[in-house]
């Protein structure tokens, strides 16, 4: 669900969504959420499109996108692996899990593998601290993850 490309149909869908808004004042955040949902990321083309339709300067749009960690301007892999680095996961050795993913995938946190299969990211607390350390692959949550589980989690995705 993360990469749907910059197709015309996505631009049409975003345009329709913006047109359907009862009020454009304060609508930037919901529009960015919608756009990231559609395109998977928020590149310059999408920012310019929003600028025109919402009548908000691109400088402001760029400022907002770069401020919030949930928004991304880079295209991500088919599987986005998010490792929770909240305190509860941290004290239960989530950094070992991060290192193992980095080793197995050959990429660092914040990077995407060359074949666009995997992106590795760290997030701050999904609130499932009872399952610490937690790893999310797209929308699926894995709990009590140890170093040795990393291989299995990756194998599950490629099947």
């Amino acid at each position: 669900m993360y990469n749907k490309g910059l197709s015309q149909s996505n631009f049409d869908a975003l345009g329709d969504y913006i047109a359907s808004l009862p009020e454009k004042k304060g609508a930037l955040m919901p529009v960015l959420h919608k756009a990231q949902n559609l395109f998977g990321y928020l590149p310059k083309e999408v920012q310019l499109f929003i600028c025109e339709r919402l009548d908000v300067p691109t400088s402001k749009i760029y400022g907002v996108i770069s401020f919030y960690s949930f928004f991304t301007m880079k295209q991500r892999g088919q599987y986005v692996i998010n490792i929770c680095m909240g305190t509860a996961c941290f004290v239960r050795k989530a950094d070992d899990v991060v290192k193992e993913f980095e080793k197995k995938l050959g990429i660092k946190v914040g990077e995407t593998s060359k074949n666009m299969m995997y992106s590795l990211e760290a997030l701050r607390c999904v609130g499932a601290c009872g399952l610490a350390p937690v790893v999310m692959v797209n929308d699926k949550i894995y709990g009590h993850v140890e170093k040795k589980d990393v291989k299995k989690i990756l194998a599950e995705q490629s099947n």
């Binding site: 960015l32 959420h33 401020f67 919030y68 960690s69 949930f70 928004f71 997030l123 701050r124």
Partner: peptide, 8 residues
Amino acid sequence: VDLGAGAF
């Protein structure tokens, strides 16, 4: 309902 976007 307004969604945040990951800023503490």
